[in-house]
């Protein structure tokens, strides 16, 4: 039985409390995230997904509904404790780099939480090894690539040994290589620990890595399910401003050309196999 780590019940949040004509950024959202899961929250820009991130770690509080973290409603009293258990990586690699060098930045959260010096040195080292940035201990941020900066941000987040890692569009400003570096790092972390990962994204590849996908549209939950279940919706997702995995797009295009395919496939291998069995192996 998996324990719940975060759950939202009927959460509504608006930036314009006075003005009822403005539609709320988040409207009666409910979902539960369990320990050890990787959940992707996807939606086009402006669908409210970043507001959701801020609600989950108490940067914002909802007008109605409750946010529960580790079973307890999030409030001003347990806020700091909650944050120490939830590492967060933001979109802009530059704007979250506090330290003058890589190691100073990783140590920042540790310093804030009063970790003793000797332990701090160990944890900084260990965290940097985990994200493979240990050769860059003394580098200054402007000498690092975007992907490297985001890996440092991850190291800074995991140095506190949190149980949740929240990625708020952490890959959206990176080049393909940087994106790959960051996703590889997260995959690696998941393989080594039972870290719960919540990634807020419009990147398809990132969503495909998740165990579960929540689709947002105009501040509401549009759909929820495994990547397979979600992407089977095809055209609906495109209408929401999202994209489909390559193999699925290809399947749809082939079908439009009159090629017979059993299903819209998620992976290229499945599609190749399908083509093989239905057309050549008769």
């Amino acid at each position: 039985m998996k324990r719940e780590v975060i759950s939202l019940q009927e959460v509504t949040f608006t930036y314009a409390e006075e003005d009822t004509s403005v539609r709320p950024a988040i409207q009666s959202m409910s979902y539960t995230i369990n320990e050890g899961e990787w959940v992707a929250i996807v939606g086009h820009n402006g669908s409210g997904k970043s507001t959701l991130a801020r609600l989950m770690n108490g940067l914002l509080f909802p007008q109605t509904g409750t946010v529960r973290v580790f079973g307890e409603p999030l409030n001003e009293h347990n806020l700091w404790d909650t944050r120490s258990k939830m590492g967060m990586v933001f979109q802009n690699p530059d704007n979250q780099f506090v330290g003058a060098t890589v190691q100073d930045d990783v140590a920042f959260a540790l310093e804030n939480n009063g970790i003793p010096f000797e332990e701090m040195v160990e944890r900084v080292q260990a965290s940097l090894v985990k994200v493979k940035m240990n050769d860059f201990m003394n580098s200054e941020p402007h000498h690092l690539s975007g992907g490297q900066k985001q890996r440092v941000a991850i190291a800074g987040a995991i140095a506190l040994q949190p149980r949740i890692l929240l990625l708020d569009e952490a890959t959206s400003m990176l080049d393909p290589q940087g994106r790959e570096e960051v996703l590889q790092t997260v995959r690696q972390l998941r393989a080594e620990t039972d870290l719960t990962v919540i990634s807020i994204t419009h990147d398809l590849e990132e969503a495909l890595l998740a165990d579960r996908v929540i689709v947002m549209n105009q501040g509401e939950k549009y759909a929820e399910g495994s990547p397979q279940e979600i992407f089977e919706r095809g055209q609906e997702l495109i209408d929401l401003g999202l994209d489909l995995p390559f193999a699925m797009n290809m399947s749809r295009l082939l079908r439009a050309q009159g090629v017979q395919i059993v299903a819209d496939h998620m992976s290229e291998e499945e599609l190749v196999n399908d083509l093989w069995t239905s057309h050549f192996n008769k």
């Binding site: 967060m88 933001f90 506090v98 190691q103 100073d104 140590a107 804030n112 939480n113 010096f117 900084v124």
Partner: peptide, 17 residues
Amino acid sequence: TAMEVRGYKGGEGRTRY
């Protein structure tokens, strides 16, 4: 925001790296 999320609440109770 990033500093707040990483638990910064002033010099009180901080250790030095």
